[in-house]
Amino acid sequence: MTSSLVKSNSTVNSISGVAQSLDDVWTDFLKLHISPNTKRTYAAALDDFFTQLTGAIANPDQIQEFLNLSQHQAVGVVLKYKGLLLDAGLAPATINTRLSAIKSLTNHARKLGQCRFSLEDIPHVRVEKYRDTSGVDAAAYRGMLACVDRASFKGKRDYAILRLLWDNALRRGELVATNIQDFRDGQLWIVGKGKTQLQSIDLAARTVYALQDWLAVRAGTADEPIFIALDGRSYGQRLSGRSVARLVAGIGKAAGITKHLSPHRVRHSAITTFLDASGGDVRTAQRLSRHSRLDTLMIYDDNRKGLQGKASGVLADLV
């Protein structure tokens, strides 16, 4: 039978090693110690991989066929997919996430004796991080908050979301994953990026009030999401990250902000604004942002100070 992934007259040899069914490989892969959000992202990435190359989403037959490829066949297939993503003009971070999903699956399959090849020699796309970390200032964000009708049901939800994104520099994935029981005693328990366990973050009094005001009208049990969709088609379901992005962009536009706003840009804005207000206290900013590496915060601080512009000014004045 001719492979739908690689056109070849040769028959791929059967895999030796641990006798595991494909269902075991896929099930075990989804049990890896990665966050629920990462699992969803990886599953979507693998669906895209197989859809673009075979016309069908990931299924046991397609995955088995892929895992049975030889080293040069597998590398060729993944490089072809990488080329398709580059041609589509996707962001480097998006391409790298999809490549990471494929590599993660094959690495896990190799441990179970279900895959003979390695994709470690396929490089990720170079990412230039945080080219613009300025975002919007506090006055502009205050204008966004003022646009929300806090007397309405939707307004109470949106106001609480905006406060969390700014006051705690939350990522949208961290925000939408929270349940009602995760908010207690002035704290919110979240699963941070790349983490698997809950961690607590302290909330400011205004943030606590905003959440309490929303939850007072949002009927739900402890294990249900804090933030739900309010449109007719998906009413009551967990609010998606995409919906949060649309919410932020819409309120930003209503507030007269010309720069396109996203939850991540709000996060950048909050971190940069704190650095301004604290005189560059990167240690405390690290606790706010929950970045594991301090040098990431230095990018924000350098951009805030405009060091490159200052250096260019000095050089220009010397000639």
Score class of each variant (00 low, 15 high):
residue 225 P to M: 10
residue 289 S to E: 08
residue 234 S to V: 10
residue 281 D to H: 11
residue 273 T to W: 02
residue 282 V to C: 03
residue 193 K to A: 12
residue 192 G to K: 12
residue 259 K to P: 04
residue 211 L to C: 03
residue 283 R to H: 13
residue 212 Q to E: 15
residue 213 D to L: 08
residue 200 S to Y: 09
residue 230 L to Q: 09
residue 197 Q to F: 12
residue 283 R to L: 15
residue 282 V to D: 07
residue 258 T to C: 00
residue 192 G to N: 10
residue 238 R to D: 04
residue 263 P to H: 04
residue 222 A to H: 08
residue 190 I to K: 11
residue 212 Q to I: 11
residue 225 P to I: 01
residue 208 V to L: 08
residue 256 G to I: 03
residue 232 G to M: 08
residue 215 L to P: 05
residue 215 L to V: 04
residue 252 G to S: 04
residue 241 G to I: 07
residue 239 L to Q: 05
residue 252 G to K: 01
residue 229 A to R: 04
residue 274 F to I: 10
residue 214 W to S: 03
residue 207 T to I: 15
residue 190 I to H: 03
residue 280 G to T: 07
residue 240 S to A: 12
residue 190 I to C: 12
residue 275 L to G: 06
residue 223 D to H: 07
residue 271 I to R: 10
residue 270 A to Q: 11
residue 191 V to F: 13
residue 260 H to L: 12
residue 236 G to M: 02
residue 219 A to C: 05
residue 203 L to A: 03
residue 217 V to S: 08
residue 222 A to S: 08
residue 223 D to E: 00
residue 254 A to G: 05
residue 273 T to A: 12
residue 274 F to H: 02
residue 252 G to W: 07
residue 212 Q to N: 15
residue 282 V to E: 04
residue 208 V to D: 04
residue 256 G to V: 09
residue 267 R to W: 00
residue 202 D to K: 15
residue 215 L to I: 07
residue 213 D to K: 02
residue 290 R to L: 05
residue 207 T to F: 15
residue 220 G to H: 03
residue 240 S to L: 12
residue 236 G to V: 09
residue 189 W to E: 11
residue 290 R to P: 06
residue 290 R to I: 01
residue 222 A to W: 10
residue 218 R to N: 06
residue 207 T to G: 14
residue 223 D to Y: 08
residue 215 L to N: 00
residue 277 A to E: 10
residue 255 A to L: 12
residue 202 D to R: 15
residue 232 G to N: 01
residue 228 I to K: 07
residue 211 L to Q: 02
residue 208 V to A: 05
residue 218 R to M: 06
residue 265 R to L: 12
residue 232 G to H: 00
residue 274 F to A: 04
residue 250 G to Y: 11
residue 244 V to R: 00
residue 209 Y to F: 10
residue 214 W to Q: 05
residue 288 L to P: 00
residue 282 V to G: 04
residue 276 D to I: 14
residue 266 V to D: 05
residue 234 S to W: 04
residue 242 R to A: 15
residue 250 G to P: 09
residue 224 E to C: 00
residue 189 W to Y: 14
residue 188 L to T: 04
